[in-house]
């Protein structure tokens, strides 16, 4: 069972993703900001990280760098309401960049895609 870390400051969204992904059979953990996410990655092993960008304390960009410096291979999907961070080269180091939508299918497909390629 793959372990996924959802990093999202919006409580309702975070909970929604957790519920949806658990329904799909993933093990989900949550972090409400970048700092928390970096802490969790330090202490736990995850198969994938879903990372929001605009967050208090530490934003997604900074967290992305810190997570990757600890574990270069961990797959990261950036999931944000803003499309303009695509132009920020820091986000290029992530495995995918998905714009938030009320339809979670795109996100779910991306997770499936990445995890299956990794398991091979």
């Amino acid at each position: 069972m793959s372990r996924i870390l959802v990093v999202e400051d919006e409580q309702h969204q975070r909970e929604l993703y957790a519920m949806e992904l658990e329904d799909d059979g993933y093990e989900v953990e949550q972090a409400s900001n970048g700092k928390e996410a970096v802490e969790k990655v330090k202490n736990n092993k995850y198969d994938l990280v879903i990372l929001d960008i605009r967050m208090p304390e530490m934003d997604g960009i900074e967290a992305l760098g810190k997570i990757l410096s600890r574990d270069k291979k961990i797959p990261i999907i950036i999931y944000t309401a803003y499309s303009n961070y695509k132009s920020n080269f820091m986000t290029w180091t992530a495995d995918a960049y998905v714009t938030k939508s009320s339809n979670l299918d795109e996100l779910k497909n991306k997770i499936k895609e990445i995890l299956s390629s990794r398991s091979v």
Binding site: E10, H12, Q13, L16, M19, A81, S101, S102, N103, L104
Partner: peptide, 9 residues
């Protein structure tokens, strides 16, 4: 997104 997501749910 939140509204839509929960509505979907």
């Amino acid at each position: 997104v939140t509204v839509g997501g929960y509505a979907q749910r």
